[in-house]
Amino acid sequence: MDFTKFVSMLESRSLYFPRADKLEDPFEGSLTAEQVGHRKDSLEGYPNEWIEELLPKFRRICTRHTFLNCWHMNDGESAAMWDLYLKADQGICIESTYESLIESIDDEQDIFVSKIQYIDYESRIPPGWGADGHIGDTITPFTHKRTSYEHEQELRAIIHDLPWHSEEGEREITPDEIRSSDLDESAYEPGRSVNVDLSELIEGIHVSPESDKWIRDLLVDVCEKYEIDPDLVAQSKIGENPSF
């Protein structure tokens, strides 16, 4: 994240979950081409409106009610991830663990955490989606991505808050509800914040390999202000000079 987002996280003591369709991958929440083909076969005899319009619109509605917080899993820093997601020389990388992420969440929202599985979206139906193209739940498309994103090695926390879910359980959404649903972006919240215990979450703070020393010094001061252990702040080792 950039420096301002880091300070915002400290100030709000929360993690931000942008809406799924706000992320850069337009395939978020979509089905594979193979699955869509099977779906058409399995629904033969249904009205074309249901197959061609309502089901695709239903999937887009799901993206409007799904919020994602994404992490890169690795034993060390990734030069590629710094280059891909850093827009300036003042970037910050937060280090944590799966267990610490889970334990740090201090919020009543239902949150599902999963590793992403990477598959060929042209020729594969993911395991558990059924040979006929049906899926047993609506969250599964958000736990899979195309193999072109495999370099991300992603772990994501997911809020999947569909309007037809309630404390009484899940009900089927009707065709009329799908028809009347507004897909205009302004009709939906752009993201959600989730309260976290930052002292539990943060196990390290890595400063961009391109940043000057004063950025690290500033981060130390900011961490002290927000009662985060300043010893957690370290310059990225990717920028170190080689030995010959």
Score class of each variant (00 low, 15 high):
Phe3Ile: 15
Asn69Thr: 08
Gly45Lys: 12
Glu167Asn: 09
Glu185Phe: 04
Met73Glu: 06
Asp229His: 02
Arg39Ser: 13
Glu189Leu: 12
Glu203Gln: 14
Arg60Gln: 15
Ser100Arg: 11
Gly76Arg: 14
Gly130Pro: 07
Leu201Thr: 07
Ile215Gly: 13
Glu99Tyr: 00
Glu44Leu: 08
Tyr118Pro: 11
Pro126Tyr: 01
Ile119Ala: 13
Ala79Arg: 14
Gly45Val: 07
Asp2Cys: 06
Ala131Ser: 11
Asn241Ile: 15
Ile125Glu: 00
Trp82Glu: 07
Arg216Trp: 01
Gly133Thr: 08
Glu189Asn: 05
Ser78Gly: 07
Met81Asn: 01
Glu185Gln: 09
Tyr98Asp: 02
Glu34Pro: 06
Glu53Thr: 15
Asn195Arg: 13
Ile51His: 01
Gly37Gln: 11
Leu84Ala: 14
Ala157Arg: 06
Asp75Thr: 15
Ile102Asp: 03
Leu155Asp: 00
Met1Arg: 09
Ile178Asp: 00
Tyr118Cys: 10
Gln153Arg: 13
Phe6Trp: 05
Ile116Tyr: 00
Asn241Gln: 11
Arg171Ile: 14
Ser211Met: 06
Asp231Tyr: 01
Ala187Met: 10
His160Tyr: 05
Tyr98Arg: 13
Thr140Trp: 00
Leu219Pro: 08
Asn241Ser: 12
Tyr16Asn: 08
Ala79Lys: 13
Thr143Met: 12
Ser236Phe: 09
Glu177Trp: 06
His151Gln: 14
